[in-house]
Amino acid sequence: MSSRDAILGRVRRALADVPREESPDDVAVARDYLRTHSPADAVETLAENLADYRALVHRTDTAGLPDLIGRLLAARGSRDVVVPDGFPAEWLPQADAVRWVQDTPEATPDELDRMDSVLTGCALAIAETGTLVLDGSAGQGRRRITLMPDHHICVVRVPEQVVDSVPEALPRLVPTRPLTWISGPSATSDIELDRVEGVHGPRTLEVVLVTR
């Protein structure tokens, strides 16, 4: 007998007390928790919660976006900046000091490790938890590009990309896409259960909330 059959057989014997006619839906799950904790202003709440976990939050409109991005990169002295396919070209600043690097599946981890910054959009942002969700679609790139460089700038279109809560976020996401949920810069609580920012992921996370 295969281990698969053995384990499934054990499960069925272990559940001898469950009536044969019971279906999964017969086990009641009360979903009387809140769909949203109704933040008065979702964008404001998002900004507060991002900042609370040490993300740097900036605001501008689409007209001011290229200039702001240019200033953020210049402030860090970033030279090599990864930009994924589908990131709107009109959002990129005219910056002579910056080399824009397209992300391709051939790019090795070593090459990505040498990049100074990465620039992406996102699939949505969750206000109550201060979370950005990237799903690898246009303008977001592969999961690794937002991991290796030490500086990540993420553009969120507000208010349309902002949802209140986790229960509101999940139905808008496609489970078959590889998702990365980001809440602040990389951190650890492993030393004396005290939170310290900055381990393996980007140590600086800058979020640009952009209005039309």
Binding site: Y53, P178, T180, W181, I182, S183, R195
Partner: peptide, 11 residues
């Protein structure tokens, strides 16, 4: 935390 820094999902 309200949310941990990173959550990965893959299918």
């Amino acid at each position: 935390e309200r949310m941990n820094p990173y959550t990965s999902t893959w299918t």
